[in-house]
Amino acid sequence: MMNAIIDAHIHLDLYAEKDRALMLNKLKEDGVTALVAVSNDLKSAQSVLALAATHPEIKPAIGFHPEQDLPSDNEIDNIIALIHMHHQALVAIGEIGLPYYTQQKNPELLREPYIDLLERFLKVAAALDKPVVLHAIYEDALVACDLLEKHQVKRAHFHWFKGTAPIIDKMIRGGYYISVTPDVIYESDIQRVVERYPLDLMMVETDGPWPFQGPFEKQMTEPAMIHQTIAKIAEIKQIETGRVYQTLYQNTRHFYRLDN
Rank of each mutant, 00 (worst) to 15 (best):
H11V: 02
G31F: 07
Y100I: 00
I96G: 01
K162S: 14
Q219T: 11
S72A: 09
A34E: 03
A81E: 15
A141V: 03
M85K: 13
K162G: 06
A50F: 00
Q46G: 03
G31H: 10
N106Y: 06
M1G: 08
Y197S: 05
D7C: 06
K237T: 07
H227I: 08
I167G: 00
L35C: 10
Q46D: 13
N251L: 09
Y245S: 10
Q104N: 06
L122A: 08
K162E: 15
E95T: 01
L98V: 00
L134F: 01
D13H: 06
D183P: 02
T102L: 14
V180K: 08
D183L: 02
R120P: 09
P66S: 06
G208H: 14
H87Y: 11
Y138A: 00
D200R: 13
V132H: 09
R196V: 01
L128T: 09
D207Y: 05
L24D: 03
Q219M: 15
P182Y: 05
H159N: 03
E205C: 06
D183C: 04
E17W: 00
R155S: 15
T241L: 15
H159G: 01
N106A: 05
M220E: 14
F158Q: 12
A61K: 10
I58P: 00
Y245I: 07
I83A: 03
I137E: 02
V143R: 07
E112V: 04
V48N: 02
K237I: 05
F255R: 05
L117S: 05
A45D: 12
L42H: 12
P56N: 11
H227T: 07
Q104C: 05
